[in-house]
Design a protein around this nucleic acid. Structure first.
Lengths: 214, 214
DNA sequence: CAGTTTCGGAACTCCTTAGTTCCGTATATG
DNA sequence: CATATACGGAACTAAGGAGTTCCGAAACTG
């Protein structure tokens, strides 16, 4: 029945400390599953691949998850990090400054991997609505959430006019990044993200930047 | 070797007129393949499914295409219609009018199906660069091309300022439609498309529409 | 009306992979 | 040291699907 929530990784455990059910081992296996998923997709992925990558036996995987689908569902849902603390987000005083400050090599790499995972399960989503929800919540929504926050702060400080459709605006960059990775198979680099910010997002919210004039 | 270009559907043939190699039969089979692809994706699709849908024998399929991949490659590339004649595009005098005139039930349905096909092969694109190119050219590029044309006309008539990044702007709507269909599994209806036009695309090119005011 | 060709369809082979079982080993407990 | 538990790994079963082969039936050819 591909039931989720069966295992919550806890970490904060030194290393292998025994032969009791080791929940940090779960996390290692799930991480291996995510890696394989990103590389070959759900249908290209075999349980043996995941076991090998995690240096585990296939039996171990089936002791912890009931099926391949169950494993993948858990792996995807565990990709969701704690929501970023709003106080920890950049606060440069301008919307553009905040958006640009979000562009870091680490976040680009992270985003690319998440998008590749998404690519690996896209064809499943139609059949598995539960996975669709979990995947979106874990992979796509966090970035949109941050964008909504930055935009709302810009509205609150009067930098931009109130936006009618904040949810849609916040999806511009994630959508176009996903398109570029999935459909075009082009890399997402700093330059591309800057062109989205300056050429699409900021103009769309009424900021006339250095790019627009002709 | 998954070679393409092996069959060009001709149509313009009354019906079954003989036992010579019937190229309109190719088109029927390819259409069946596209339908199945849209419904279950590449990995969910079996050659038997396609044969059954086309009321053909599996042997017939293998007489015409060397492999499942070959069949799919041909099917996807045959989805590309002739490029729309620029003269046949709407010409209402305003960019918004042209964009809205492009929203027709037929085109919405067509776009949804194309996007579902794309979803069915996304995970393949990483392994099959040839398919990636063909799929993009057949499925995604035509719509972007139309958008580029409409935008360029608006620039030419002085309605909007010259756009630095026309290619990117033309991808806004296709990207966000794809995102909505693939990731969110929400329907793409007229209302959503209008909200993209008025809430994202037109603001991004500097048209202050009726939607923006708060 | 023979001869030819392609057809639809069924039966078949072969391979991959999900899921199971078994076993020797390593570690913690007492 | 004896016991119990979970482990990694390998061998196994079962099912599904790609690709092949064969055959009787249709329909064009001449």
């Amino acid at each position: 029945m591909t039931q989720l929530g069966s295992s919550a990784p806890v970490a904060a455990v030194p290393a292998k400390l025994g032969r009791k059910r080791d929940h940090s081992r779960d996390a290692e296996i799930l991480e291996a599953a995510v890696d394989v998923l990103a590389e070959v997709g759900f249908d290209g992925m075999t349980v043996d691949m995941v076991a090998a990558r995690a240096k585990a036996g296939k039996a171990t995987l089936y002791r912890r998850w009931t099926s391949k689908s169950d494993l993948v569902l858990d792996a995807v849902s565990c990709m969701k990090e704690r929501d970023a603390d709003p106080a920890a987000l950049p606060d440069t005083g301008t919307l553009r400054g905040d958006l640009v400050a979000m562009i870091k090599p680490h976040s680009i790499e992270d985003s690319a991997k998440k998008t590749r995972v998404m690519a690996g399960i896209v064809s499943l989503l139609a059949k598995e609505p539960e996975l669709a929800q979990v995947a979106h919540a874990a992979i796509m929504e966090p970035r949109a959430r941050i964008n909504r926050l930055l935009l709302q702060r810009a509205v609150d400080r009067g930098e931009i006019a109130p936006v009618a459709d904040l949810d849609t605006i916040a999806l511009i960059v994630p959508s176009m990044v996903a398109y570029r990775v999935l459909m075009l198979h082009l890399p997402v680099d700093r330059e591309f993200l800057l062109s989205l910010i300056d050429g699409v997002l900021l103009p769309a919210v009424g900021v006339r930047g250095a790019a627009g004039s002709g």
